[in-house]
Simulated scan of single mutants.
Amino acid sequence: MKRKCLIEDVDGNLDSFEKKIRANFASTSNSTSATMHKNSIWYRSLLDAEKTCLKEDKIKKIHYKFDDGKEMVEEYNIDTQVLLRRAWKVKAKLGGEGKWDVEVGDPIPDGIPTNMEAADITERNDQPQLTRRNTRVNLEWRIRNLPYPIETYSVSANNDERRIIIRTTNKKYFKKLEVPELDRLNLPLEQANIQASHKYNTLIIVYKKPQPLLDMEKEWYEELKKVKAVKDIPDNCKAQ
Rank of each mutant, 00 (worst) to 15 (best):
R167H: 14
K231H: 13
L185F: 08
I233N: 09
Q211L: 12
P113R: 01
R167N: 15
W141Y: 06
N125W: 04
I194A: 00
T131I: 12
G111K: 09
V104R: 01
E181I: 03
K225A: 10
F174A: 10
D183A: 07
N138S: 04
H198W: 06
D106I: 07
L224C: 08
D110C: 11
V179T: 14
E181Y: 01
N159R: 06
D215K: 13
W100E: 02
L189I: 05
E219A: 15
W141D: 00
N125I: 01
D120F: 08
I204Q: 06
F174V: 04
E217H: 09
E181S: 10
I112K: 05
R136T: 15
E123G: 02
D106W: 13
R167T: 12
P188E: 04
G98R: 03
E103D: 13
Q195V: 11
P212Q: 08
L146G: 05
Q191K: 04
R136A: 15
T135H: 06
G105T: 01
A229Y: 11
G111V: 08
T168G: 02
D126A: 01
G105C: 06
E140N: 03
I205N: 07
E178D: 13
P109C: 08
D215A: 13
D110G: 09
R162A: 06
Y207N: 01
P128K: 02
E117I: 05
V102C: 02
V104Y: 09
L146W: 10
V155S: 04
L214N: 07
T135R: 10
L187K: 04
L139N: 05
D215R: 13
P128A: 04
Y221Q: 03
G111Q: 04
D215H: 15
G96R: 01
I108Q: 03
E103Q: 15
K171E: 13
V137S: 15
I108P: 02
R167K: 15
D232P: 01
E140Y: 04
E178W: 10
Q129M: 14
P188H: 05
P212H: 02
I121N: 02
S197I: 00
Q195M: 11
D126K: 00
L185S: 02
N170I: 06
M116T: 11
R136N: 13
A157K: 03
R124W: 05
K99H: 14
N115P: 08
E217A: 12
N159I: 05
D110Q: 06
L214H: 02
V179S: 09
E151G: 02
R132D: 08
I194K: 02
R133P: 01
E222W: 00
E123R: 09
N145I: 08
D110A: 08
R162F: 03
T168A: 01
P212Y: 03
D106P: 08
N159V: 08
P212G: 02
L185V: 00
E222K: 15
K228N: 11
P234S: 14
I164V: 07
I164M: 06
K209T: 07
E117T: 01
I150K: 11
T152D: 13
Y153R: 02
A229P: 03
S197K: 04
K99T: 15
W220H: 15
E219D: 13
K225V: 09
N201W: 10
Q127C: 06
P109D: 07
P109R: 08
L187I: 00
D101P: 00
